[in-house]
Simulated assay, not measured.
Amino acid sequence: MSTTIPAFHASGFSRAKGKGDVFIDSRKDAASSGIFHIEIDVHFDPAGADNYPAGSLLIKTDMNDGAKGVFIASSIELINSYGKLNPTIYLTGQCKSDAAAAAPLRGCRYWVMVANNSRENKGTPDIVGFCIHDRNGNRVAYGTGPLKGDIDVAPN
């Protein structure tokens, strides 16, 4: 039996900036608008001065089947992107929230994906997906759908 060290996940050159709303009809009811809002401004350049990914991420949720409130990234631990014609970015890290929940949300972690399918809201909309879990691994909020707005992801 040999001892192995887990593989590290290294970030690659990536950049995304923009904002918008995603409406999901099935996540709308009498108490929920069915919308999540995202604002993102993140970057990482392995050849640059920063040793780690940096930036800001905010997700505001108002959907059934999940906590409602604002989630703000407190760290960006991994960021990667790929593609030239419709660059796609993935990021993950820790977040804090004021979301209404049965118990205070602690140890939240997020995962976000943005596919930049169009420039200037022409043609196919950008797609955004996210999932947030608490420290026990319970899903707190999630959603994926077409963005009304624009998030520019740098081609890689």
Rank of each mutant, 00 (worst) to 15 (best):
D134E: 01
F13V: 14
A30D: 15
L58Y: 07
D41K: 05
G107I: 10
S75H: 01
V114G: 05
I24H: 00
D50A: 14
P125L: 01
I132V: 15
D25R: 10
W111Q: 14
A31H: 11
Y90F: 15
K28W: 05
L78P: 00
I35H: 01
M63S: 05
L85N: 12
R135L: 12
P46H: 10
K68D: 11
V70K: 10
Y110N: 01
N80W: 04
K19C: 10
S75C: 07
A103C: 06
T124M: 15
K84F: 12
N51L: 09
F44Y: 15
K84S: 11
G93A: 07
P104G: 12
I38P: 07
D126Y: 03
R119A: 14
I127E: 12
G55S: 00
I59K: 03
M113Y: 08
I24P: 04
P104E: 09
A16V: 00
N64W: 00
I79L: 15
M63A: 02
V112M: 09
V42S: 03
L91H: 03
Y90H: 14
G20V: 08
I40E: 02
V114H: 05
A54P: 00
G83L: 08
F13Y: 15
E77K: 13
F13S: 15
E77L: 11
N64K: 15
P104R: 13
D134G: 09
G69K: 05
G66K: 08
S56A: 15
V42M: 07
K68N: 12
I72K: 15
Y110S: 00
Y52G: 03
D21Q: 10
W111D: 12
P125S: 02
I76S: 02
G34D: 02
L85V: 10
T88E: 05
F71K: 07
H133C: 13
Q94F: 06
T124Q: 15
L91A: 04
A31Y: 11
R135G: 15
L78C: 01
M113G: 09
G55V: 06
A67L: 09
N116H: 12
P125A: 05
L57A: 02
K17M: 06
L85C: 01
G83V: 06
T124H: 13
C95W: 04
I38F: 09
M113Q: 13
D134H: 07
F23S: 04
A67H: 09
S75K: 01
T61Q: 06
I59G: 01
A49H: 13
D21F: 10
E39C: 08
S118L: 05
D25I: 05
